[in-house]
Simulated assay, not measured.
Amino acid sequence: MASRPERLLRGSGAPLSASFLELFFDLAFVLALSQLAEHLLDDLTPGGALRTALLLAGVWWIWVTTTWFADWYDPESPAVRGLLIAAALASLLAGVAIPQALRERGLLFAGAYVVLHVGRSIITAVALRGHPRQRRALRIMSWYGLSGVPWLAGAFLPDWRVPLWVLALAIDVIGPRLGWPTPRLGRARSEELHLAGEHFAERYQQIMIIALGELVLVAGLSYADTSLHLPETAAFLLVFATAVLIGLLYVTPAGLRLAPVIEHADPARLGVITGYLHLVMVAGLVVTAVGAELSIDHPTRTGDTAAVLAILGGPTLFLVGRILFSLAIHRRISWPRVAALFVLSGAAVALRMPLVAVTAVATGVVLVVVVLDQAGVMRYHQRQPGGSR
C-alpha cells in the first residue's frame, strides 16, 4: 500500500489528460488576459507596453507553476484539488488587480501571487515529510520566500514597485532553470524536474486556445458595438482570419511534436524554456487583441502610429516566439517566418494606410507563412519511408 506522501504524487498510471480542475483554473486566466489587453489599450505607449509585460509575466508564471504542480502531483488527491482551486482564486484576484496593480491595488496583486506560491510550497513540503521529493518542495519554498520579499516590498513602496517586481520576477523565472539551488539542499536533479510530455503539451495547447479565444472575443464584442458597415465588417473578418491562421501556425509542426520532445529532453532546459517561449507567443496574442479592437472600432483611421504598431506588432511578437519555439524543438530556423518578421517590421515604419488595410497586410503575411509551412510539412511527409513520392 502506498504511503501517504506517495499518494500525493502523480503515479505512473495516472491519466495524462488535463483534469476538470485544471480546465477550471484556466478560466481564471481568461479574466487576466482580458484585463491585460485593456491595460495596454489604456496606455498604448512603450512604457505602457513594458508595464503590461511585467503584469503578464506575473500571471503567466502563476499558470506555468500551477501546470508543473498538476504534472507532479495526483490531480485526484483532495489536497491537490484544494490547491488547484486556490490557484484559480489567486489568478482571479490577480486579474481583478491588474488595472490598478501599479497603483492602489499593488498589494492585492502581489499578495495573491506570493500567498499562492509560498502557501502551496509549504503545504506540499509538509505533506511530503520523510519522502525524497520533499527536498524539491523545500527548495521551491525557499526561492519563493526569497522572491516574496521584493514582491511585497514593491506593494508597499509605489515609487520602487516596478524595479522591485522586476527583481522578484527574475528570481522566480531563473530559479527552475538553475534547479532552485539552496544551501544544504543543493539543486534539483533532472529526475526531480521530469515532466509528462503528453500532459504538458496538451496544457500548452489549451492555454493557447484560451489566448486565441480572448482574441476572438475581443473581435466579436468590438464588431457588435459598430454599425456593421463594410469597413468594420472587413476588419472583423480579417481579425478572425488572423486568429485561425495563428492557431494553425502554432500546431504545425512543432506544436504536434512537443509531447515526445518534452518527455525525453532535459526538463531543466526544454521544460523551462518552452514556458518562456509560450509567454512570448501569448504576449503576441494580447497585443494582437488590442490591435484588433482598434482596427474594428476605427477601420478608416489613418496616421495612428500606436494603432499600427499594435496591429503589426502582435503577429510579429507571436512569430518571434514561434521561431524560437521551432528552434528549441527542431533545432532549426524557419526562414519564411524570419522573412515575415522583416516584412512586418518594415510595414510598421512605412505604412500610412487606414487601419483596416494595415490589418490586411498583417493577415496576408501570416497567411503566406502558414502556406509555406504547410508546403514544408507535405515535403517532409513525402520524404519519410512509405510516404508518397
Rank of each mutant, 00 (worst) to 15 (best):
A2E: 12
A2L: 12
A2C: 00
G11Y: 06
G13F: 02
G13W: 04
L16V: 15
L16R: 15
L16A: 12
A18D: 09
S19F: 06
L27P: 09
L27Y: 08
L41R: 14
D42I: 00
G48D: 08
L50E: 04
A53Q: 00
L54E: 08
L54M: 11
W63C: 12
T67Y: 03
W68M: 13
W68T: 07
Y73I: 03
E76L: 10
A79I: 15
V80F: 09
L83A: 08
L84W: 08
A90P: 07
L92H: 02
A94K: 02
V96S: 09
R103Y: 10
G106R: 01
L108C: 06
F109V: 13
F109R: 00
Y113F: 15
H117W: 11
S121W: 05
H131R: 08
R136I: 00
L138S: 05
Y144T: 09
V149W: 14
P150V: 05
P158D: 07
V166C: 09
L167E: 14
L169C: 11
A170K: 06
G175S: 13
P176D: 02
L178P: 12
G179C: 07
W180S: 08
T182E: 02
R184P: 00
R187S: 11
L193E: 08
A201I: 14
E202Y: 05
I207A: 04
A211N: 05
L212I: 06
E214M: 05
L215N: 04
L217A: 15
L221Y: 06
Y223G: 06
H229L: 12
T233K: 11
F236R: 07
V239E: 01
A243K: 00
L245S: 02
I246H: 00
L248H: 14
P253C: 02
P253M: 00
L258R: 04
I262K: 05
A265E: 04
A265D: 13
P267Y: 07
R269K: 10
L270D: 10
H278C: 05
H278K: 03
G284D: 01
G284E: 02
D297W: 01
P299L: 00
G303D: 10
G303R: 15
D304W: 11
T305S: 12
A307Q: 07
L309G: 14
I311N: 12
G313S: 03
G314E: 02
G314T: 10
L317C: 15
F318M: 05
F318W: 01
L319C: 11
G321M: 03
A328M: 04
R337H: 07
V338W: 01
L351E: 00
L355Q: 09
V361T: 05
V361F: 00
A362H: 00
V368L: 11
V368I: 14
V369T: 15
V370W: 14
H381D: 15
Q382K: 10
Q384S: 09
G387Q: 07
